[in-house]
Amino acid sequence: MNFAVLQFPASNCDQDAVHVLQHLGHDARLLWHKEPSLGTVDAVIVPGGFSYGDYLRTGAIARFSPVMQALRRFADNGGFVLGICNGFQILCEAHLLPGALVRNRSLQFCCETVYLKSATADSPFTNKIPADKWLRVPIAHGEGCYFADDETLAKLRARGQILWQYCDESGALTDAANPNGSLLNIAGVCNERRNVAGLMPHPERASEGILGSEDGRLIFESLIETLSHSTAAAVA
């Protein structure tokens, strides 16, 4: 497969996303935020970092980059997009995903390993994750508390758009397992069309044995599986 990884000023997980995709045997290249077009790609990763220093509000400036217009067209055409951490924040700011990410409940940046429960296997991003498997992946963010109004939350639930939730080692969605105060322990969601998803945890940091967990691979492998069945690549 052929991936583009967007690069904003002060993206800092861009190389990691390229690394893991190449490690899994796929082509991945960085795409500078000033590019007006994505070229031919099978899927796009919006990586983690502090785009534009996250000044003003996380992701708030990045959404105006030229590449984001191309990304919007790509998503509108059904192209697959995965946002990780700051990428998730940018996709929410750009209204490609519902809801918002606000300051962690602790008011502190938080870097630790969490357990993630996949709420559904029925998505391009979770289809390879066994129902009884909690993913052990790290988080690293200061503004990862997922927030949406009640109506949106109800819709997300009804349409199965909640993809990942923070859980404890037994799979229970407890308050103690919730690292940032996210509503419904939400760690990641997808759009209604199910081709755009975002999550705060970093699967790219948990995709190789030497890093202590390979669980994150399941998310990339789900996407790759989906792409291998999808017809012509979307273009934007």
């Binding site: 800092n12 997980c13 190389q15 990691d16 690394h19 893991v20 983690g48 502190q108 940046f109 938080c110 870097c111 630790e112 790290p138 690293a140 970093h202 790219e204 940091r205 190789e208 030497i210 890093l211 202590g212």
Partner: peptide, 13 residues
């Protein structure tokens, strides 16, 4: 140390 990102760059073993 939980306030420091200690895993960015996917190299922390």
């Amino acid at each position: 140390y939980r306030q420091y990102d200690h895993q960015v760059r996917a190299g922390t073993v």
